[in-house]
């Protein structure tokens, strides 16, 4: 009985500790992709500004949107891709911040100063950019990075050894590229072709997941896998057994931005983070961790040798097509294809 009392006392103490005041300069709740930032960056931010960062993670743009829509508000910053920034602006989910007026905005490369999804830069500041494609396990006979065929219609060696992302957006866009279709196509024939392509691929699929994909590939659980370039590079640097592919048909490009969702409690701290990250040395730190390119002029000075010579970052002469936000009809059709696929 006494021990029980002690236990009770211990939890009361824990409770007391928990409600003690947070750090003076305040906090920042960051909602980010898995493995897209680490504490070398957040610790430096805390050191520079005194603001403490708390991180939660998600695995796809779809999950982010669903979570924010379902009332999981209170996040001060999120990191959607360009097409989802567009959706969130249209749905009135973001707080206006006027990124243009921030001191470090001057470092943003001219080419990225009028992005089509947020031309006035009222809501979003640059985070990282990269491509979506697939990667192969070297020497497995599963592919030579020649064509998206290796991913969508895998050969005998890769049968049952394909890894595919868990949510449809990027997979379907890759399929559109492979089939030579336009993004957001609402044509019945196009959608049917996508559906039968993915259905055919499924018999070779080992796992649908967007996280830990490159470790699975490196360990040989999969031999062909959906991949983001930075993720693939991270694993390649470890043991050089995988190759990120730029197939001849092209790859999907994306540009991730920082945005402040409505309901954010620490808007000023979020703005501080946006501005802080646009400084070349900080953005370089992020690129060195995540292994993606960025839109900040002068950040390359601070980047590692690996980044400067990365074959994953330098896109060879294949088309890069950026995903757009599509209409509800298309969205519904894709959802149907996906649910049918996972049934």
């Amino acid at each position: 009985m006494k021990q029980v009392m002690k236990l009770a006392a211990a939890s009361t103490v824990a409770l007391g500790l928990a409600v003690s005041p947070a750090t003076a300069a305040g906090e920042l709740f960051l909602y980010n992709w898995t493995d897209y930032i680490d504490n070398t960056i957040t610790d430096k931010f805390t050191k520079d500004t005194g603001i403490k960062v708390t991180l939660d993670t998600y695995d796809s743009n779809e999950t982010l949107l669903a979570k924010l829509k379902s009332g999981a508000t209170g996040y001060d910053l999120a990191v959607p891709s360009q097409n989802f920034v567009d959706i969130m602006i249209k749905e009135g989910m973001l707080i206006e911040v006027d990124v243009k007026s921030m001191p470090n905005y001057k470092h943003v490369a001219d080419a990225f100063k009028k992005p089509s999804w947020d031309p006035e830069q009222k809501y979003s500041s640059p985070y990282q950019m990269g491509t979506t494609s697939y990667a192969v396990k070297k020497g497995s006979g599963a592919g030579q990075c020649a064509s998206l065929k290796e991913f969508f219609e895998p050969n005998a060696a890769a049968k049952g050894k394909v890894g595919v992302f868990k949510t449809p957006e990027e997979v379907v866009n890759l399929a559109h590229i492979y089939l030579g279709q336009n993004f957001c196509t609402e044509k019945t024939d196009d959608l049917k072709a996508v559906q039968s392509l993915l259905q055919g691929q499924k018999s070779s699929v080992k796992v649908f997941s967007s996280e830990g994909t490159m470790d699975r590939l490196g360990d040989g659980v999969t031999l062909v896998s959906n991949a983001w370039n930075g993720d693939a590079m991270k694993r390649r640097l470890k043991d050089d057994t995988i190759q990120y592919c730029f197939p001849k048909e092209g790859v999907v490009g994306w540009f991730d931005s920082l945005v402040i969702p409505k309901g954010a409690k620490n808007v000023e701290n979020a703005k501080t983070f946006m501005n802080w990250l646009m400084a070349p040395e900080n953005m370089a730190l992020l690129s060195n961790f995540a292994n993606y390119a960025n839109a900040i002029v002068g950040s390359d000075k601070y980047m590692t040798k690996d980044m400067a010579s990365s074959p994953e970052v330098q896109v060879p002469s294949v088309p890069v097509k950026f995903g757009k936000s599509c209409g509800p009809k298309y969205t519904k059709a894709i959802d149907k294809i996906w649910t049918k696929l996972l049934q």
Binding site: S60, E62, T63, L65, A66, K67, K69, S70, K166, T167, D335, W338, T339, L342
Partner: peptide, 10 residues
């Protein structure tokens, strides 16, 4: 399936 509808499939 239920979780999917409330999460990414919306």
């Amino acid at each position: 399936l239920i979780h999917l509808q409330f999460a990414s499939s919306r």
